[in-house]
Design a protein around this nucleic acid. Structure first.
Lengths: 111, 111
DNA sequence: ACAATTGTCAAGTGAATACTTAAGTAACGA
DNA sequence: TCGTTACTTAAGTATTCACTTGACAATTGT
C-alpha cells in the first residue's frame, strides 16, 4: 500500500504531460481499473501503466490491486498541493499589486 | 506586445520544469530584468532566456523590452487557468465522495 | 484443465528537452 | 567614441521521456 507523500516537484512534473492529465481527468469521475483507463487512450496498456507509476510516485494517484485488477483513484491531497503552490504565488503577486494601487490612490497618508 | 492567451497544455508543460517554477516564484515578488532573474539560477543567461520563451508562449509571463533591458512580469491569468483546472477536477472528485457519503448515511430517502 | 483477461517487466527507439558555447547586436555611460 | 552591459541567436550535445514490442505471471470463468 505505502501511500506516497505528495511532493511539489513530482506533482508538477506529472501534470506536465497531457496523457497523465487525461488520466487524472478520468479518475476525477471515480475509481477505475487500468484497462478501462487505457481504453480511450490510443496508447498501449504498458504505456498507461508507466504513466500510472509516475502519477503514483508523485502522490496524485493511489492504486490497489485486488485479484488481477488494479483499481486507481485520485489522491486529492496531491492536487491540493499543486493548487496551493499556484495560489500562493498568484496571491503574493496580487497583494503586491494592491499595495501599489493604494500608494497611487493616496500618496499622502501622514495624517 | 501581443499578449499570448494562456493555454492549459502549455501552462502545465511550463510549470513542469523546476527552473521555470523558480522563475515564476521570483516573479511573484515583482517585475525584474532577465539578468537579475538569472543571478541566483546557476545556469547561463542563454538558458534563462530559453525558459522565458517557454513561459511567455504559455501565457504565464509577459515581458517588455525598454532600451537594452527586458523586464519580466507574471501574467496571473495563466496561473489562474492552471489553478482552475486542478480545482475543477478536485471538486468533481469531492462532490462524488459527498454523494457516496449521503447514500451510506441515509440508505432510504423514499419518504 | 485450459483459455481468456488483466496486468507486469525489460529492453530498445526516436523525439523532445535543458543546457552549453560562441558569436553577434543594440543601448548606455564615461 | 569606446568599452561595458544586457540581451539574442544558432548550433551542438547529452539526457530524459513517452512509447512500443515481446515475453511473462497471476487470476478468473467455463
Amino acid at each position: 500500500m505505502h501511500k506516497k507523500k505528495p511532493n511539489v516537484d513530482r506533482v508538477f512534473h506529472a501534470l506536465g504531460d497531457p496523457t497523465r492529465r487525461a488520466i487524472v481527468e478520468k479518475l476525477s469521475e471515480g475509481p477505475i481499473s487500468v484497462s478501462r483507463l487505457a481504453e480511450p487512450l490510443d496508447i498501449t496498456l504498458a504505456a498507461v501503466v508507466q504513466h500510472l507509476q509516475v502519477l503514483e510516485e508523485s502522490g496524485l494517484v493511489q492504486t490497489e490491486k485486488t485479484g488481477r485488477v488494479r483499481t486507481c483513484r485520485i489522491e486529492p491531497a496531491g492536487l491540493s498541493l499543486a493548487e496551493q503552490w499556484i495560489g500562493d504565488r498568484r496571491s503574493r503577486w496580487e497583494r503586491r499589486l494592491d499595495r501599489l494601487g493604494d500608494l497611487l490612490a493616496e500618496p499622502d497618508e501622514s495624517k
